[in-house]
Computed example of a mutant assay.
Amino acid sequence: MKNYKKVFVVDDDKIYHFILKNLLNKNGISVTPCFCENGLDALEALKQKISTNSLPDVIMLDINMPVMDGWQFLEEFKKLKADFNLQTPIYLITSSNDSVDINRAKVYENEISDYFLKPINEADICKIFLN
């Protein structure tokens, strides 16, 4: 079992937040989620966590969001990763099964651990948190 305790969930969909919380509880996965509704909020929260040396153990990232989307967040994350030697894995969790997005994710192979389609399910949660 992976030792993920602090989780950043970057997604503007409140229904997804609810489903995710229920899946985590149902599977006995005890984590402290921080919900950010767009990439900019997540980036600002991440910078604050860097300054207090309290980084998230994992980031669950959507692609399509207002203000700053997942791709823009990944670009900024790459810079922070280089500057601060971040090791936080990122899982893309999106409704996009478009081959353009799937191929674009490959550009971030050093940042993205895996790509999951919504709706996220129990098997996906187990792959992220238990395998």
Results as ranks from 00 to 15, higher is better:
residue 11 D to C: 04
residue 13 D to G: 12
residue 13 D to N: 15
residue 14 K to C: 00
residue 14 K to F: 08
residue 14 K to R: 10
residue 15 I to H: 10
residue 15 I to D: 13
residue 16 Y to D: 09
residue 16 Y to W: 03
residue 16 Y to A: 02
residue 16 Y to K: 02
residue 16 Y to G: 00
residue 16 Y to I: 00
residue 16 Y to E: 13
residue 17 H to T: 08
residue 17 H to D: 08
residue 17 H to S: 05
residue 18 F to D: 08
residue 18 F to W: 04
residue 19 I to R: 10
residue 20 L to V: 05
residue 20 L to C: 09
residue 21 K to A: 12
residue 21 K to T: 10
residue 22 N to F: 09
residue 22 N to R: 13
residue 23 L to F: 08
residue 23 L to T: 06
residue 24 L to G: 10
residue 24 L to C: 05
residue 24 L to S: 06
residue 25 N to D: 11
residue 26 K to C: 00
residue 26 K to D: 13
residue 26 K to F: 11
residue 27 N to R: 01
residue 27 N to G: 00
residue 27 N to V: 01
residue 28 G to I: 01
residue 28 G to A: 00
residue 29 I to N: 03
residue 30 S to W: 02
residue 30 S to H: 08
residue 30 S to A: 15
residue 31 V to K: 04
residue 31 V to G: 06
residue 31 V to W: 03
residue 32 T to Y: 07
residue 33 P to N: 12
residue 33 P to C: 14
residue 33 P to T: 14
residue 34 C to Y: 12
residue 35 F to K: 08
residue 35 F to M: 08
residue 35 F to V: 08
residue 36 C to R: 04
residue 36 C to L: 04
residue 37 E to V: 01
residue 37 E to P: 01
residue 38 N to I: 04
residue 38 N to F: 04
residue 38 N to K: 05
residue 40 L to E: 14
residue 40 L to N: 12
residue 40 L to A: 00
residue 41 D to Q: 13
residue 41 D to A: 09
residue 43 L to P: 07
residue 43 L to K: 10
residue 43 L to I: 08
residue 43 L to Q: 05
residue 44 E to Q: 12
residue 44 E to N: 15
residue 45 A to Y: 10
residue 45 A to L: 05
residue 46 L to D: 06
residue 46 L to F: 09
residue 47 K to F: 03
residue 47 K to T: 00
residue 48 Q to P: 02
residue 48 Q to L: 12
residue 48 Q to N: 14
residue 49 K to E: 14
residue 50 I to W: 13
residue 51 S to I: 09
residue 51 S to M: 07
residue 51 S to N: 14
residue 51 S to H: 10
residue 52 T to A: 05
residue 52 T to L: 11
residue 53 N to I: 15
residue 53 N to P: 05
residue 54 S to N: 15
residue 54 S to L: 14
residue 54 S to H: 13
residue 55 L to M: 15
residue 55 L to D: 13
residue 55 L to Y: 10
residue 55 L to G: 11
residue 56 P to Q: 10
residue 56 P to D: 10
residue 56 P to H: 11
residue 57 D to V: 14
residue 57 D to M: 11
residue 58 V to T: 09
residue 58 V to Y: 03
residue 58 V to W: 06
residue 59 I to M: 15
residue 60 M to V: 14
residue 61 L to G: 08
residue 61 L to C: 07
residue 62 D to I: 01
residue 63 I to L: 12
residue 64 N to V: 03
residue 64 N to P: 02
residue 66 P to K: 07
residue 66 P to G: 07
residue 67 V to I: 13
residue 67 V to S: 04
residue 67 V to K: 14
residue 68 M to A: 00
residue 68 M to P: 05
residue 69 D to E: 06
residue 70 G to F: 01
residue 72 Q to D: 09
residue 73 F to V: 01
residue 73 F to W: 03
residue 73 F to R: 03
residue 73 F to S: 00
residue 74 L to A: 01
residue 74 L to S: 05
residue 76 E to S: 06
residue 77 F to K: 09
residue 78 K to A: 10
residue 79 K to R: 11
residue 79 K to V: 11
residue 79 K to A: 08
residue 80 L to P: 08
residue 80 L to F: 06
residue 81 K to T: 13
residue 81 K to V: 05
residue 82 A to E: 15
residue 83 D to L: 12
residue 83 D to N: 12
